[in-house]
Amino acid sequence: MLALSLMLVTFASAQADETVERRLFAMGTALMLRVSAVDRPTALAASEAALRALESTERRLSTHREDSELSVLNAAPVGHWLELSASLARDLALAQQCHELTLGGFDATLGHPRAIEFSGTRARRLEDATLDAGGFGKGVGLDAALAAARRAGAAGVMMDLGGQIAIFGESLEVRVAHPVRRARTVASVPLSRGSVATSGQGEQPGHIRDPRTGDVVPAYGSVTVTARSAALADCLATGLFVLGGERALAVSRQLDEVEVLVVERRVLGVRLAGATP
């Protein structure tokens, strides 16, 4: 996931009397959170509910913590069945779905797609491979945070977690940065619900590899995805970027309620191509 490729340009607040803005860190990156509600105490409580939901997601999915549920699964002996929480089972099912939707471009097993066997809410490792939530964890956290804020009384929420935006009850224009000249805007993406995520090699060259081959994906530009689910936007952005611009657009035309923008570097400027169902 490429952070900071999205720049917020407008924030149309929902009908609410108070808006709280918070800036802190969560899930290993920066979080900017705006919550509107009928009054300030409600807005504060909803913002904290969102933050706690992110923290809960991190405790479940972080591979930097030995005690996370995902780390426990990764450390389990090969062949040993583990009972998963309903949340982790749902997370991993989404990762598997994303793997299929992107024809293998997204792979939480980092090149060992048959290394984990699932049976209901149980899972076991079939070989010495591990799962990584780097391509979908933030999105899962954003979905959980939006739901938590809503339950706590928020009328509108906007979150920017390390460059991925998620909203409800608001509308935004999100700028997509030039894949190399980060200060330049090459397009704007309207967002009225759900999430927008961008993937590319601009900020950390070479950090995205094709899980099917292990090769570094060429830095041809970026792929921006909007979807109702932040988790889906997160993993699709990575998986479609791996496929390359033309293939990404072809695949995205088969996806419901997903919009894709491909930015390709050219000798002079960039080429924009989008797919809308």
């Binding site: 952070a3 900071l4 802190l24 860190f25 290993g28 990156t29 920066a30 979080l31 930097h64 390390g162």
Partner: peptide
């Protein structure tokens, strides 16, 4: 001029 995201990421944990 607010602290940029990269700095928060560096102090995490």
């Amino acid at each position: 001029h607010r602290p940029p995201p990269a700095f928060y990421a560096q102090i995490h944990g």
